[in-house]
Design a protein around this nucleic acid. Structure first.
Lengths: 206, 206
DNA sequence: AGGTCTAAATTTAGCCCTAAACGGATCTGA
DNA sequence: TCAGATCCGTTTAGGGCTAAATTTAGACCT
């Protein structure tokens, strides 16, 4: 999911560009997507009154998620794993011995639908990274357990991924990182409480 | 894109299977995904020394991107559009009259591959939202132009989407929103300059 | 007991994306 | 002028996800 920058607006009114020289006359960096600032400015210019207030937050979050996701995918491709599988294995690994969770619990911790979990588990089982078995717990519970091969795969890749990501955010000072972490935490907590509240998704919004 | 919370850390090296209680790992709200803090703590507990420093930033960014993306998809489903199509139309709309851009330019502004742009345009063309024609400009350039129907669709949905997203971030004070916007901008700029730098994606990183 | 309800997992249909192979046109240089 | 290098856009193969339909097994009633 995560899809694109922001639904909206792009640069100035005139740089149609169809052909032209990509060079010096271009608005910004001709090789890069527009920034949230440029998108909001374009909205204002094209449609005065457009509610652009959220763009400065939502757009960079999507762009960053895309960059982090693509980067992780490339890092993991070298190890022959995909991000969805590593995510599954990591959740199990982090849960501690005996490295087993129900499908239900996996879904909750992975932010994907039950169907997606089912497919992830099936793929991982196919590759011998987890096992699946009925568990006596609740009615129809299935217990997914990490195999030694799955455990090894996590051990072999997690530090790589996390180290790489630490490098990617290293441009911020420790103070900036702390401030950003705090603000993101506050925003996430708040958004979680609002999403799913269907009253707000009506047109008139509040 | 955007996939999951955090690849997490996994635990120790040897104790496969231990045995029982999945217990102590379920610390918080049983209905919600784990927070970055809980994930980092689980790593520390299971594998002391894991480089968790980036988790406080990367994990909430993914979770937020997922929440925003899912929410937007649901809002747009009512209008019978998908997020990818609206993104395409919006880029054209905000480029201003004559609402036409080359495939190449569309790819740059959308953060997706050329193949994805081609497919998006084909779908939108199928629905009569854009037209596609050869343009004399560069060598093999194709010009994609918004139709009146496409223009109308943007007008009918963009405010809805942006208003909804403004509601979603309304829990932050104006000061917090400004601070977050600034930090995200700094981080994004920095990450863009680091991604693609292949030296960093080696294991040894940094 | 038997019928109905509900919860959990899976399956199915359809969408969208990436990576890589492909097709065609322009530029380059002998 | 012709071969090769390039550049753009499209097509193909395959992965991954969501939403909805389906299957199953206990739970609940009467």
């Amino acid at each position: 999911m995560a899809r694109n920058p922001q639904t909206g607006r792009d640069g100035d009114g005139g740089d149609r560009d169809g052909a032209r020289t990509p060079g010096p006359a271009a608005p910004q960096d001709p090789e890069r997507a527009h920034s949230a600032r440029e998108i909001a400015a374009a909205w204002e210019r094209e449609r005065p009154g457009t509610p652009v207030s959220s763009i400065g937050i939502v757009t960079p979050i999507w762009q960053l998620a895309k960059l982090f996701g693509d980067d992780r995918r490339r890092v993991l491709a070298r190890a022959g794993v995909d991000t969805a599988t590593l995510d599954l294995l990591s959740v199990l690994r982090r849960s501690g011995p005996p490295y087993a969770l129900s499908t239900r619990e996996l879904g909750r911790r992975s932010l994907v639908t039950a169907g997606a979990v089912s497919q992830r588990v099936a793929r991982a089982e196919q590759e011998g990274l987890v096992t699946r078995e009925a568990a006596g717990g609740r009615p129809r519970t299935v217990l997914v357990t990490l195999t030694p091969a799955g455990h090894d795969l996590v051990e072999a890749t997690v530090d790589q991924v996390l180290h790489r990501e630490a490098d990617l955010v290293a441009g911020l000072t420790p103070e900036q990182q702390a401030g950003l972490t705090e603000l993101l935490h506050v925003l996430l907590t708040d958004v979680q409480s609002r999403v799913g509240d269907d009253r707000l998704s009506q047109v008139g919004g509040e």
